[in-house]
Design a protein around this nucleic acid. Structure first.
Lengths: 231, 231
DNA sequence: TCTCCCACTTCTGTATACAAGAGTCTTGTA
DNA sequence: TACAAGACTCTTGTATACAGAAGTGGGAGA
């Protein structure tokens, strides 16, 4: 009765079926278990997830609202494409949002908390084998993102960022992590955290802009490599 | 194609029942026909809209995703509150997004099209009885918004702005339109359109910032009046 | 052999039936 | 009279049945 791919959601207990279906599908799409272009037929998914069509429909509607799937006339919904064509658009919006978040965080009474994170990032940048601790590193990044969101204290901004980060997660899968890039990224994050901790708005925006620029360059470069060699 | 701002749906013909329910509920919420706090019971709404519970459920889920309604445990969904408490947050995000849109529009090959709109806004500002042509004026604003979206040519940004503008529409209802404010607003919009037409990024951002600041001040001022007198 | 048309299959969209849970009202007891 | 407990009702959450539409495949005709 248990669906094949469902290792991540331990807590199906008190969850509604529609919630379960949504989380499962969302996870599978973000993690590329369901590749772009995959048709999400209602009956097929309801069988796979072990629930009826009704909650699956609700889940699919939410995925379409998230932009993770698109509704095709007559053909149901399919997993949306991940295109590098609009990566610059994604990053334009991301820069606008993250710079604003950084600005607001600079004015937060909690901004001192960023000093510890800055130290942690600097340490991470000097870790010998950073590529073997990728998961830890990404968790650190998540902590910084979360702290910025909390310090910015703007629900509208947080929602916009949340909607955006899903797409980013999918795109990121296109680029493998190189140790050199991870190290550089850690340093950039340290700079951002430092800037916020010091309350320097201009510096925080600049650091954020720099980091996003480097990240964009990395993904673009690697994705081109991928297309040329593997794809 | 889709109308930019659903003036309302006369076109229930080829529409799915769920779409119809969504547009109808969304319209009623934005137009304050359904006041904040109103309980959106599924059976009640399905009877009112003449469709069954299934499409109503789908519509309600979308409204919750939009932030126009909130799901209350055990009590179904209710129309979300419109609070002035977080108006500054709304405008912080709005400034970030609209400034970015204006910046991108400045780089668009279509930026020359803004010159005509600038002229139209200047004319509107000099209309004798601007308060009797409020609808026309708001349509002009909608045209500018739409043109900026198109010129910015960034689907992610357009989505974020669309999500935000719904909340703004609701808040705007708190403040009556005064002729003086409408005139000033028309001039501010003319400035924005002029700046974009000339391709001056800094000027476009400044004009946008100024307009949003004035708009924020107006709503804040009036809303305080409202609370003191009518409410 | 190619093309067009018709029928069949399969899918979505909608309605409705059923079950579980929460809230409320009523009644009984202290 | 007030409080508590139980039952009832209303609501949501889920499953399923049915209808309509769209795609597909096969057969017939040119």
């Amino acid at each position: 009765m248990f669906p094949p791919i469902f290792a991540f959601c331990v807590y199906t207990e008190g969850m509604r079926a529609s919630e379960k279906a949504y989380e499962s599908l969302r996870h599978d799409i973000v993690q590329w278990c369901l590749a772009p272009g995959t048709v999400l037929a209602e009956v097929e998914q309801s069988a796979r997830l072990g629930v009826s069509r009704t909650p699956v429909r609700e889940a699919l509607a939410r995925l379409v609202a998230d932009g993770l799937a698109v509704q095709q006339r007559g053909r149901g919904v399919v997993v949306s494409e991940v295109s590098l064509e609009h990566l610059d658009d994604l990053f334009d919006l991301r820069r606008a949002l993250e710079c604003e978040a950084a600005r607001l965080a600079c004015r937060s009474p909690r901004r001192a908390e960023f000093a510890d994170l800055a130290t942690a990032f600097t340490a991470a940048a000097h870790t010998e084998q950073i590529d073997s601790a990728t998961e830890d590193y990404y968790q650190l990044v998540a902590r910084l993102d979360e702290l910025i969101d909390q310090a910015a204290d703007n629900a509208y901004l947080a929602t916009a960022l949340r909607n955006l980060r899903v797409h980013l997660q999918r795109v990121r899968r296109l680029a493998k992590d190189h140790p050199a890039r991870l190290r550089a990224s850690a340093n950039e994050h340290a700079q951002i955290a430092h800037a916020i901790a010091s309350g320097n708005t201009d510096l925080a925006r600049a650091a954020t802009t720099m980091h996003l620029h480097q990240s964009f360059q990395h993904i673009t470069h690697f994705a081109t490599d991928l297309k040329g060699t593997n794809d």
